[in-house]
């Protein structure tokens, strides 16, 4: 018999290995487009890990938001860039000590955080969604829109403000901009633009002998 737990564990380590490898590739590969694609792969395999943990909503939201939208725009920008790798390489040795110090400080902080959390560790309760008998997604929706409505709405407002600010900061109105109004175009009446003239058919008079210039 195939042990499902063992199978899940194998899957977890598989996805985790892919995630770590992809994350390493993001900072090591030479081609910046390849780096962005590695980041996409890292997001994707992270979503797979979350799916294993039965957090289907978060996993699919990660794919929709990050892989489907954010990374596409990222790729869009990186494709346009013409990065000279030599210049980036030059700074590598110079900034290496600073980088190592920052990395060590971050590592220490994370270890301290995990250590502190481990001291206060308590066993997680049973899955609340399963306890109510709802699907993960339905339970999350219920919780977000009832119990946590205010923080949720505040987050939404902050994001909206962010969008508005981004547009306001980058919008430059040129003075000579020619504007086109679709509603005006639709409302236009053909009779204002062209005039159809009805006239009787006519032909130029036949030249007669008397009208011919005399030699």
């Amino acid at each position: 018999m195939i042990d499902t737990n063992l199978l899940q564990l194998i899957c977890f380590y598989g996805f985790a290995a892919v995630t770590v490898a992809a994350a390493l590739a993001v900072i090591t590969v030479k081609n910046s487009v390849h780096a962005v694609l590695s980041l996409v792969l890292a997001f994707f395999s992270t979503a797979c890990i979350w799916l294993l943990a039965e957090a289907e909503f978060l996993a699919i939201a990660l794919i929709v938001v990050y892989v489907g939208a954010v990374m596409v725009l990222f790729l869009f920008v990186v494709m346009m860039l013409d990065i000279k790798m030599e210049q980036v390489r030059e700074g590598f040795i110079r900034y290496l000590p600073v980088g190592i110090i920052v990395a060590l400080v971050m590592l220490g902080e994370m270890l301290a955080l995990i250590g502190v959390r481990a001291m206060h560790a308590h066993v997680l309760g049973a899955d609340p969604a399963a306890a109510v008998g709802l699907s993960n997604t339905a339970w999350l929706g219920g919780a977000l829109y009832t119990q946590y409505l205010l923080p949720f709405e505040i987050a939404a407002v902050i994001l909206t403000v962010g969008v508005v600010v981004a547009v306001a900061l980058t919008l430059r109105q040129r003075g000579d901009k020619r504007h086109e109004s679709a509603s005006e175009q639709v409302r236009v009446n053909p009779r204002d633009r062209i005039r159809v003239v009805k006239m009787a058919p006519s032909r130029p008079d036949e030249p007669t002998a008397s009208q011919e210039p005399l030699q």
Partner: peptide
């Protein structure tokens, strides 16, 4: 259960 979300995810991947 999250079929509709899955569809959104899949259709957004096609652009790659």
């Amino acid at each position: 259960n999250a079929g509709l979300l899955y569809l959104l995810a899949m259709t957004s991947l096609g652009v790659y």
